[in-house]
């Protein structure tokens, strides 16, 4: 392989994904605000640009032009490092995500493993930010985030192992390829051979909500209890990076769910139907954004859970279910495969 072309391609993809992540983060804020507004029978941003479409740019300009205040007595290196550490792994993960058969930066054999590994860095960043802030609310929030993430990583990994068992690969492209041929072949549905498909999906979705600290599991942020949680003391782009990191993580979670359960870039219709049946990146994005909309809708519908019911949900419901699911799937694979 020609090294020069490879590096060139790498740079193009990297720039592209950073731009994609940033644009998504910015416009998901717009979607969130506009969506929340309409759910609540308001109009939302409408003054900056048509339908308020330029609002994210205005917000970004505002955040960037503000002073980055470092309060007295904080742990400076950690305080500065934490927001960066939320954003970097998020962009790294984008490298492994196949948006279609052709649009992917690197085709790893262990793509799934890499995503999960990088996703765990996020919790470290939140812990660092909360701890370094020298604010009691932030420290409480950091402690909450850590226990929450540890509790939800277990069922999530068990579910991922189930999927790996079924598709027989940790390569994301191959996992998607295993779901080709219309909606009935998706991992989501029992028709794919795994009769526990829907439960697997729901558990994974709940875990991804918890891992991304989204409502109703936004205990780290908990604005009515902990002011703003771990980013209470952050201003300017420090806050901006946390914010972007949160939305980038949502995109990743939705993309991963699409890959694992919703057949990636494949159309839900059989391939024999022209146009609508063809697989393309459009299908991938449609599925991904529908999932993101679900995440937004959930945030504006439910109250927040408490720490104990959050942990109870994980240990008493999700983990037993996912373990049973793993056993059943393994048995099925052995029987049928």
């Amino acid at each position: 392989m020609d090294l020069g072309i490879n590096v060139f391609e790498m740079v193009i993809y990297l720039v592209g994904f950073i731009a994609f992540a940033a644009a998504n983060a910015a416009y998901l804020v717009w979607v969130e605000r506009k969506g929340a507004a309409h759910i609540q029978r308001r109009t939302g941003p409408k003054e900056v640009g048509p339908y308020g479409l330029l609002q994210p740019l205005a917000d970004g300009a505002k955040l960037m032009s503000k002073q980055f205040i470092i309060p007295a007595g904080v742990d400076r290196p950690l305080f500065i490092l934490a927001p960066i550490l939320t954003m970097v792994p998020a962009i790294m993960i984008f490298v492994t995500i196949p948006f279609s058969e052709t649009i992917l930066a690197r085709d790893f054999n262990i793509g799934l493993l890499m995503i999960l590994a990088f996703a765990s860095v996020n919790v470290l960043a939140l812990l660092m930010g909360g701890w370094a802030s020298r604010n009691k609310y932030a420290v409480i929030s950091a402690a909450r985030v850590v226990s929450q993430n540890i509790a939800y990583e277990i069922p999530m990994l068990i579910i991922v192992i189930t999927i790996v068992l079924i598709s027989g690969s940790m390569n994301l492209t191959e996992i998607v390829a295993g779901q080709a041929g219309g909606i009935l072949h998706w991992n989501l549905l029992p028709t794919n051979g795994n009769f526990l498909g829907p439960i697997t999906f729901i558990i994974f979705f709940i875990c991804s909500l918890a891992e991304t600290n989204r409502a109703p599991f936004d205990l780290g942020e908990a604005e009515s209890e902990l002011i703003a949680g771990f980013h209470t003391e952050y201003s300017s782009m420090g806050f901006g990076l946390f914010f972007m990191g949160e939305y980038a993580n949502i995109v990743i979670a939705a993309a991963l769910t699409t890959i694992l359960f919703l057949g990636g870039w494949y159309s839900p219709l059989p391939e024999s139907i022209p146009y609508a049946g063809a697989s393309s990146v459009v299908w991938f994005l449609v599925k991904m954004y529908l999932l993101i909309w679900l995440v937004v809708l959930i945030r504006w519908t439910y109250p927040r859970v408490t720490l104990w019911s959050l942990l109870n949900l994980s240990w008493k419901i999700l983990i037993p279910f996912s373990l049973f699911n793993l056993l059943a799937s393994a048995g099925l694979v052995k029987l049928l495969g």
């Binding site: 759910i39 308001r42 109009t43 439910y302």
Partner: peptide, 28 residues
């Protein structure tokens, strides 16, 4: 318990989704 809880969550989602399609009531 799990099923009843899940049902209540779905009902909640359907309410907010329906409100989403209604017209805003605020005055600019």
């Amino acid at each position: 318990n799990i099923l009843g809880g899940a049902k209540s969550l779905v009902v909640g989602l359907s309410i907010t989704q329906r409100q989403f399609f209604k017209k805003p009531i605020t005055l600019q």
